[in-house]
């Protein structure tokens, strides 16, 4: 059994078994949060661990690896954060601005800060959000497609399809290749 999985399962009856997970995954989870909500990441990390601890009994190894489950908890915490921020955002904000509560905002700012080429930024911006999210989970969180699928709660096959589609769309955007390369449900 995967050590993380073992800890999560044991933690249901032995709470102390949960704590080693904090040491093992905090850096990765904080990275995930800081890339998407930089100013709130420190506080959100605590929320993630509290939420994960409170819902540890819902972990089902059959539905994916423990790491993916933890990132899924972080994703839910982030979603609530964005909802809160959206509600608090001034309704008079200009329509052209990316709203504070839009997950893409921090990501795009990060890409901009990294001096990433406008073509790639534009290509990423044009990806459907579910595809972009999966792509960034693989590129930034170094999750496998199967783990990324567990994070967003979809079958692994669906995640692989979406990732394939995202990759193809980016190739099209960045090299000028036509969409005839797309196959199956990717077209």
């Amino acid at each position: 059994m995967d050590p993380d999985e073992d800890l999560l399962v044991r933690a249901v009856s032995e709470p102390a078994a949960f704590e080693p997970l904090v040491d093992r995954h905090s850096v990765a989870l904080h990275g995930y949060l800081v890339r998407r909500a930089p100013t709130a990441a420190d506080d959100l990390l605590s929320e993630v661990w509290l939420q994960a601890y409170a819902t540890r009994h819902t972990y089902d190894a059959a539905r994916g690896p423990a790491r993916g489950w933890l990132f899924g908890v972080a994703r839910n915490v982030l979603a609530r954060h964005w909802q809160t921020v959206s509600r608090a955002t001034d309704a008079s904000q200009a329509a052209s601005e990316i709203p504070e509560g839009d997950p893409w905002r921090a990501v795009d700012q990060r890409l901009d800060a990294a001096a990433m080429g406008p073509e790639l930024r534009d290509g990423l911006a044009r990806l459907p959000e579910p595809e972009r999210e999966l792509l960034l989970l693989v590129a930034w969180e170094q999750l496998t497609p199967t783990e990324a699928a567990a994070v967003v709660g979809i079958p692994a096959g669906t995640a692989r399809s979406r990732l394939h589609r995202a990759r193809t769309r980016l190739r099209v955007a960045l090299t000028g290749t036509t969409l005839t390369n797309l196959t199956g449900d990717f077209a």
């Binding site: 904090v22 905090s26 850096v27 904080h30 990275g31 800081v34 890339r35 990441a41 420190d42 990390l45 605590s46 990060r110 890409l111 800060a113 990294a114 990433m116 080429g117 073509e119 790639l120 290509g123 990423l124 792509l135 960034l136 693989v138 590129a139 930034w140 497609p145 990732l163 394939h164 990759r167 980016l170 190739r171 960045l174 090299t175």
Partner: peptide
């Protein structure tokens, strides 16, 4: 999955500093 132009730059753009020890302590 990451076989597209600019994939390396994208990965590099995701680099972050480790969290402050006080954050982990909290």
């Amino acid at each position: 999955v990451l076989d597209f132009p600019g994939a390396t730059a994208l990965k590099n753009a995701g680099r972050t500093e480790p969290p402050d020890p006080a954050v982990l302590a909290a």
